[in-house]
């Protein structure tokens, strides 16, 4: 595993070549007059896995207290971009990030930034559910415990129960909170991971296909949760469902082959895409 320290240095030394590497593709941007102020901002982000480039010069502004959706065909780099935003790419051996990403104007990749604290502020729900081999309760209590969020046992219990309720899992597991989390079904595990992420109380939540294994009812619970979280949190969600993107997000970004093709207000992207590739994708012709 790459040491966090080393890769933080790599992040700073963003070589200026990153600008030229894009060989002049232009993201189609539609500004949103109603958009809230920018919280997260990516500028010319490139990601390499070894010699292979997975993202090319991605620049986008993410407004605060709203939902932004990342869409695009499989393998286009959505997860990769998401992982840049809380520096989870640091943990991948051979992964290299160049460019600049700022949270409230502060570069995430600057050496002053404490990755551990950063990840507590920018939480993540992974594409594949990855519950710890611990009890359901312990899974959710894990984050609050290490960050010392609860002063007493009852406070901890309250956090766990509220988080499970918000993720729509509590009713199903309330009699077996101390059974192993790995014994849940795939969809339940996914909701457990969502509960685990929100239990820490992050300011920004990154969700990588949070509903991919869920039935319509569980999906609508999660969508309601996202809608509710939007009041206070900044949310970025990766999804393969156009309907979901249209339902929950205010901003949509379309990725294709490592490039950010088009971004803009969700309504605009879905009703009147300006790029041909975007149009083909949302009408089901590519991907």
């Amino acid at each position: 595993m790459t040491s966090l320290f080393r890769s933080s240095l790599q992040g700073v030394a963003a070589p200026p070549t990153a600008l030229e590497a894009g060989d002049g593709y232009q993201t189609v941007r539609t500004p949103d007059p109603k958009a809230k102020p920018t919280r997260l901002s990516a500028h010319d982000v490139c990601v390499f896995y070894g010699d292979k480039q997975a993202l090319e010069n991605v620049s986008i502004d993410i407004p605060e207290r709203s939902v932004s959706a990342l869409i695009g065909p499989s393998g286009c780099g959505k997860s990769t971009f998401l992982r840049c935003l809380n520096r989870m790419n640091d943990t991948i051996e051979g992964a290299r990030v160049t460019g600049e990403i700022t949270l409230d104007g502060e570069n995430l990749y600057s050496p002053q930034v404490d990755v551990v604290e950063l990840r507590a502020r920018i939480g993540m729900v992974f594409q594949k559910p990855n519950p710890f081999p611990k009890s359901i309760f312990e899974n959710v209590a894990y984050g609050p415990k290490i960050h010392g969020l609860a002063r007493s046992k009852s406070e901890l219990e309250e956090i766990v129960v509220t988080s499970l309720k918000r993720a729509g899992l509590f009713e199903e597991v309330k009699d077996r909170l101390h059974a192993p989390g790995t014994g849940l079904s795939g969809g339940q595990q996914q909701r457990l991971c969502i509960a685990r992420a929100i239990a820490v109380g992050p300011e920004v939540i990154l969700m990588d296909e949070p509903c991919s294994a869920l039935d319509p009812i569980a999906t609508s619970i999660i969508e309601e949760l996202i809608d509710e979280l939007r009041e206070n949190y900044t949310i970025i969600i990766v999804t393969h469902s156009m309907q979901q993107a249209a339902r929950v997000s205010q901003k949509t970004a379309f990725f294709h082959l490592g490039k950010l093709i088009e971004e803009g207000p969700t309504e605009r992207i879905f009703t009147n895409p300006r790029d041909k590739k975007t149009q083909d994708y949302i009408t089901g012709r590519i991907g």
Binding site: M1, N86, M88, T91, V116, E117, L118, R119, A120, R121, G123, M124, F126, K128, N130, P131, F132, P133, Y142, G143, I146, H147, C193, R196, A197, V200
Partner: peptide, 11 residues
């Protein structure tokens, strides 16, 4: 994935 899950929570 387990390691990432923990690191992703800010551990």
């Amino acid at each position: 994935a387990l390691r990432d899950g923990s690191l992703g929570l800010g551990a």
